[in-house]
């Protein structure tokens, strides 16, 4: 039992790390296509070894720590940023129960009855790494970037949490597995189109992706909270961002797009992870598409959008969903 948990955890960690490497490549290639370029295609066939080359380059870069930085926190901050990003993936169900060499194995690490709350709790923790990175660098731009990131993430966390309520109400449970199973016949996006939109935008803001990448706005903040970071520490911030992007894609697929459910998944449970990954790749493509299309919005507009439009809409969505469920489901 414990061995099974350890194996599953190691698999998830490795998958997320490898996923991070290849999502960077995926993003660069797709962005290049959208901008009528080719993108990195020299390292290996079709650029398949590009992440390895990037990794080697980052490892051999010089490690710089500013003289007046708070050294301890400066070193800890990237680590504090990566850990929540990895931990959050623990509650995502990959599939049902499959037969693995004659013994039943559940394709999820854990099915806790507060799974959705766990996601919210861990997301709220992930603010620290970025804030501390900004503060410990002892650099005005970094501090401003860190504070911006914190304010933005806290503001959009509310809308994110509210958008979770729709699927919770429809499934009548906070367990991710129950929520996915409640979508065996119809995806939640049909009942919750507004909730899905709010989730998408709040999720993008939560992981500081374009068009909400204010904390790293090059033009005004040079690079925001990670301006002083180099080499592997910088790579860790990069890794955290991409793992979070994968995580919100997987969570969004599970909450709104039916998760591992799809045709014939009842007969062949091994199809579950394949469906989930297909949906995840689709959401990743949309995220890259949004980055290629939309310009970054101004910071005050960002806050106004979060507090004055998204949050009231999310509340309205919860209210309407609850009323409809009471009227219809009784």
């Amino acid at each position: 039992m414990i061995l099974e948990w350890i194996l599953k955890s190691v698999f998830i960690l490795l998958f997320m790390t490898a996923g991070f490497a290849y999502v960077t490549l995926f993003e660069r290639r797709v962005l290049a296509r959208m901008q009528v370029r080719i993108g990195p295609n020299r390292a290996g066939p079709g650029g398949i070894l590009q992440p390895v080359a990037d990794g080697v380059k980052l490892i051999f870069k010089e490690e710089l720590i500013p003289a007046d930085a708070n050294k301890l926190i400066f070193v800890l901050a990237p680590i504090i940023t990566v850990i929540p990003a990895l931990v959050i993936t623990a509650v995502i169900p990959w599939g049902g129960v499959v037969n693995f060499f004659g013994r039943p194995v559940a394709l999820y690490l854990s099915d806790v009855n507060v799974g959705v709350l766990f996601i919210l709790a861990v997301t709220s923790i992930s603010v620290y790494g970025i804030t501390l990175a900004g503060w410990s660098s002892n650099n005005k731009y970094a501090l401003l970037g860190g504070l911006r990131a914190t304010a933005q993430m806290i503001s959009y966390e509310l809308s994110l949490g509210m958008s979770f309520v729709g699927p919770i109400l429809l499934a009548g449970s906070m367990s991710m597995l129950d929520i996915v199973n409640s979508q065996a016949h119809m995806w939640n996006i049909v009942y919750q189109p507004l909730g899905f939109l709010i989730y998408t935008f709040a999720g993008l803001a939560e992981v500081n992706r374009a068009p909400f990448d204010m904390p790293e706005a090059e033009q005004e903040l040079t690079a925001g909270y990670h301006v002083e970071y180099s080499s592997m520490k910088f790579a860790l911030f990069f890794m955290a961002e991409y793992i979070k992007v994968i995580a919100i894609s997987m969570i969004g697929s599970s909450l709104f797009l039916g998760g591992f459910h799809g045709p014939f998944v009842d007969q062949f449970p091994w199809l579950g992870p394949i469906y989930l990954l297909a949906k995840t790749v689709l959401s990743l493509f949309v995220i890259v598409w949004i980055r290629a299309t939309l310009p970054r919005i101004r910071y005050d507009r960002l806050m106004a959008l979060g507090w004055k439009i998204m949050f009231p809409l999310a509340l309205l969505n919860v209210l309407v969903t609850a009323v409809v469920i009471i009227l219809v489901g009784g």
Binding site: N113, L117, A121, S124, V127
Partner: peptide, 26 residues
């Protein structure tokens, strides 16, 4: 008490302490 535990992390560690950090830094 898993529900309270998650609320504790979200409210205390995720919101209240971030506010403290904010004020200290500002």
């Amino acid at each position: 008490a898993p529900f309270i535990a998650m609320a504790q992390v979200t409210v205390y560690a995720g919101a209240i302490m971030v506010l403290f950090l904010f004020v200290i830094m500002l």
